[in-house]
Amino acid sequence: MKILLTGKNGQVGFELAKKLGALGEVIATDREELDLTNPDAIRAFIDQIKPDIIINPAAYTAVDKAESEPDLAYQINTVAPGVLAQEAKELDIPLVHFSTDYVFDGLKKEAYVETDKTNPKSVYGQTKCDGEEKVRTYEKHIILRTSWAFGSHGNNFLKKMLRLIQEKDSLNIVSDQKGTPTSASMLADVTFKIVDTIFKNKNFSDYGTYHSTNEGITNWYEYATLIANEAVQLGLKVRCGSNHIHPIASSQYPTAAARPLNSRLNTDKLKKTFMLELPHWESEVKKVLRELI
């Protein structure tokens, strides 16, 4: 099996590149090898390598910067997935595409299910939402929506907190946004299971949209205090312990792009369809901290 993977230097792409090798030849690309802002280059690359499946975790993820760079975000998050879907259709191969909780407005009280109405409140969210629609024009697609991704590779909240608790005397962290931190390695495991299932079952028909996060719910403040406490237990010398991390409201920390107050995603469909058990976010955070400290 020949697997085309985009975004190999991103958090999820990095873990996928390591994991998917057990299934076949992984052609892992970054922006130098595959420029997602250039539709013609995408088509030429795919026509040349003729993969058996395309996996697309690559995205423009600078949420606040997207407000001032909407065209670039649109090219990478909307146009490129559409081109990948067209190419997948021509080759009659599956396409796995990653999306985000930001396609929702965050106003629902319960966890979002796959069929809930999208209503993005930011340029990033809108471009990802539009990208989903482009992917859905091709039947053989899997869209994996996730939230609050973290890992030992790339930039994320966990690594930022590790740096800040060593530099700052105190921190103010937003406490009214709920969601689930999701490890990149878990997303790679889930993707592995999905790809393996598709290719082992010639009659596979469970294409569509799935929510994929770790188990459990938290907020950014609770997440930060867990990181601080765990880092201290692992022997990291910190200036800012958890008792000097203070909860604040989103209104006290204005950002260029609006964040959903509720990012919780219901994963029942994914677990049932692919017979998966998903680990709790806390155990995954502790695992990554042990790798980093």
Rank of each mutant, 00 (worst) to 15 (best):
Leu4Gly: 08
Gly10Lys: 11
Val26Glu: 11
Ile27Phe: 09
Ala28Ser: 11
Ala28Met: 05
Leu36Phe: 09
Thr37Cys: 08
Ile42Asn: 02
Pro51Met: 09
Ser68Gly: 03
Leu72Val: 02
Ile76Gln: 00
Ile76Glu: 04
Asn77Ala: 01
Val79His: 04
Leu84Glu: 11
Leu84His: 10
Ala85Trp: 05
Gln86Thr: 08
Gln86His: 07
Asp92Ser: 12
Pro94Tyr: 06
Leu95Ser: 04
Val96Trp: 06
His97Asp: 14
Phe104Gly: 07
Phe104Gln: 11
Leu107Thr: 13
Glu110Leu: 15
Tyr112Ser: 08
Tyr112Phe: 13
Asp116Gly: 07
Asp116Cys: 13
Ser122Pro: 12
Lys134Ser: 04
His141Ala: 07
Arg145Ala: 12
Thr146Ile: 08
Asn155Leu: 15
Ile165Lys: 01
Gln166Phe: 10
Gln166Arg: 09
Leu171Ala: 01
Val174Tyr: 10
Gly179Asn: 14
Gly179Asp: 13
Ala184Asn: 13
Lys193Thr: 08
Val195Tyr: 06
Thr197Glu: 03
Lys202Glu: 13
Lys202Leu: 09
Phe204Ala: 05
Gly216Ser: 04
Thr225Gln: 08
Gly235Pro: 00
Gly235Leu: 00
Leu236Asn: 00
Leu236Ile: 01
Lys237Gly: 00
Lys237Asp: 09
Lys237Gln: 07
Arg239Gln: 07
His244Glu: 09
Pro260Leu: 12
Leu265Asp: 10
Lys269Ala: 03
Glu282Thr: 07
